[in-house]
Design a protein around this nucleic acid. Structure first.
Lengths: 158, 158
DNA sequence: CAGAATAATTCTGTAGGTGAACCATTTTGT
DNA sequence: ACAAAATGGTTCACCTACAGAATTATTCTG
């Protein structure tokens, strides 16, 4: 191990969790300014990529419980960002779609994510930021993280 | 920017927050096995380093509100891990100390932190882990993070 | 076609957190 | 010296996010 990097060993996990919390809460601040919770943002991004998903699928992809999805979509629908359409093939489930207003919010969200990223990585040089991105991606892959999932525990056994 | 690292740009903030959540929740799992919440663990580590702190100071150092400290210490005291001693110089405040049992739990906690760190960084080589530690420390410094503080927002203005 | 399974929903409960109000003690200004 | 302000700890009412069980409507299956 490079001697210059010794000494902060054993704190990396804590730093990761600390910085993760900062990243999350700063992002939450930014989304709150356009009236969204981070969960709202997650649903919108998911529906942008996979239109027509059922609430069940949304719950699964996002790693939340189906009963949580109900008030989430209620609120999004109430603000005219998401539509519930009864599936014609299976009238039990809905097909969820972004409305035009939802698409516009999605664009705002992308701007926010870009600003957020820039602010967060500001203390690093471009090369360092790239390195960090690489290392985190490798960590995420090693722990089997999905790109939609944003929760603490990953698949508890049995 | 190194071409090999392009393409994951703009996801680093998300990865950070995602991995931070994983780190936090895995740590919570481990502490729960010895009957502690992460907050408990934070208080214990703090009191180990700064014995005799008042509840006010604990609140400040940990970035939580004083009224939150009360049930936290209550519970720790109830399990015989922490002692409240009335300060003789100022009988309004307590001096908080770890008991012997508290010291023993502190040792367990250190073992847990070590295991946790190892598990979390397992997907990386030693050099990569060191690099990551360096980059995260730099980020933390750049954002003015304290080593005790573990919360989302850092000092809101006014 | 009765019964099992599935999607969505409702309801109840819990964990963790905030801020205001309150009491005891100490400090400060005149 | 002592009334008023400040400080440490506590209690209380409240809020948000979340989980899990029970419920309803619909579809699938033997």
């Amino acid at each position: 191990m490079n001697p210059a990097t010794q000494g902060q060993s054993k704190r990396t996990a804590f730093l990761l969790s600390q910085l993760g919390a900062v990243a999350s809460s700063r992002f939450a601040e930014r989304t709150r300014e356009i009236g969204l919770t981070p969960s709202d943002a997650g649903v919108i991004r998911l529906l942008a990529r996979s239109p027509g998903l059922s609430q069940r699928s949304v719950a699964e992809k996002l790693g939340i419980v189906p009963s949580r999805v109900v008030p989430l979509i209620d609120s999004l629908q109430g603000r005219g960002l998401v539509n519930r359409v009864r599936s014609s093939s299976d009238r039990r489930n809905y097909e969820l779609h972004l409305t035009d207003a939802g698409e516009r919010v999605l664009h705002e969200l992308r701007g926010i994510a870009e600003q957020h990223e820039a602010e967060l990585l500001a203390p690093l040089t471009g090369d360092q930021a790239a390195q960090l991105g690489f290392l985190l991606a490798q960590l995420a892959a090693g722990h089997g993280l999905d790109r939609d999932l944003h929760r603490g525990s990953v698949s508890q056994q049995s």
